[in-house]
Amino acid sequence: MSEQEHKRLAKQSIVCKVITVSDTREKQTDKSGQLMQEMLTSAGHFVAGYEIVPDEQQSIRTCIQAGCDDSNIEAILINGGTGISKRDVTIETVAPMLDKEMTGFGELFRMLSYTEDIGSAAILSRAIAGSCRETAIFTTPGSSGAVRLAMNKLILPELCHVVRELNK
């Protein structure tokens, strides 16, 4: 079956949870989390949950686990905490939770970041995606530019397809 056929057979609306990892943002100042939600709903998806959690592994893990345990949540989109500073622990938290990693997501995100946005600073990005049981997980840097790039070029074009594959 071709990629187009896979996408055609996928449901067109996915139930998502958005998580912002930040020690400083609040709902009023969380531009990236708001942007993710707006882009998802504009594309016809449903945001069933939204949380801001601190850059702490237990807080991040608990929030992701709650999304994976909720049978209605099909995808979790996380922004923030993906850099290399001491406080950035999103990747260290998410990676061990993944049953399967979509390595192409991080590779393509860094390539797109390099060519379209930030040049050699793209090496600092540790974006990751994969699945935890039947839940798709996408993790992006916390800047609005990074979120917009990941959503437009990678996540939204494949979200329905990824969820379909996880539910076969």
Results as ranks from 00 to 15, higher is better:
137 I>S: 03
126 R>L: 05
102 M>Q: 03
109 F>G: 10
136 A>D: 01
110 R>F: 08
127 A>M: 09
133 R>M: 01
131 S>W: 07
111 M>P: 01
103 T>E: 14
99 D>S: 14
108 L>R: 04
114 Y>A: 09
135 T>F: 04
127 A>G: 10
103 T>I: 12
127 A>N: 10
101 E>C: 05
132 C>Q: 02
104 G>S: 08
112 L>M: 14
109 F>E: 15
114 Y>M: 12
101 E>H: 01
119 G>Y: 01
138 F>T: 13
105 F>M: 13
117 D>Q: 14
100 K>E: 05
111 M>R: 11
104 G>Q: 00
118 I>E: 09
116 E>K: 09
122 A>R: 12
103 T>L: 13
124 L>Y: 06
113 S>E: 04
121 A>H: 11
112 L>T: 07
123 I>F: 10
124 L>F: 05
133 R>N: 05
97 M>V: 00
134 E>P: 15
125 S>V: 02
109 F>P: 11
105 F>R: 05
136 A>K: 09
104 G>A: 05
130 G>T: 00
110 R>K: 07
114 Y>C: 15
118 I>G: 07
128 I>R: 13
113 S>P: 15
112 L>E: 14
102 M>R: 00
96 P>D: 07
99 D>R: 15
126 R>D: 01
131 S>K: 12
107 E>L: 07
135 T>W: 01
119 G>N: 06
128 I>A: 05
113 S>Q: 12
127 A>K: 06
124 L>D: 05
113 S>M: 08
99 D>H: 10
132 C>A: 05
127 A>F: 01
123 I>E: 11
125 S>A: 05
109 F>K: 11
128 I>S: 13
131 S>L: 07
137 I>L: 14
122 A>C: 14
123 I>G: 09
105 F>C: 06
139 T>K: 08
137 I>V: 09
122 A>M: 13
119 G>I: 02
131 S>I: 07
135 T>S: 04
111 M>I: 12
134 E>F: 04
104 G>N: 01
106 G>N: 06
122 A>T: 03
101 E>V: 02
130 G>D: 10
134 E>Y: 10
125 S>E: 03
117 D>G: 06
125 S>C: 12
111 M>D: 14
122 A>S: 15
128 I>P: 14
122 A>L: 09
134 E>N: 14
120 S>F: 10
99 D>E: 12
136 A>P: 03
105 F>Q: 12
121 A>G: 04
98 L>I: 13
121 A>E: 03
109 F>Q: 07
118 I>C: 10
125 S>Y: 00
120 S>T: 09
134 E>A: 12
132 C>T: 04
132 C>H: 05
115 T>S: 14
138 F>L: 15
130 G>V: 01
110 R>T: 02
118 I>N: 06
112 L>R: 14
128 I>G: 02
139 T>N: 13
135 T>N: 06
103 T>C: 11
133 R>V: 00
121 A>N: 08
127 A>T: 03
126 R>I: 00
124 L>P: 01
100 K>I: 06
102 M>I: 11
105 F>L: 11
135 T>A: 11
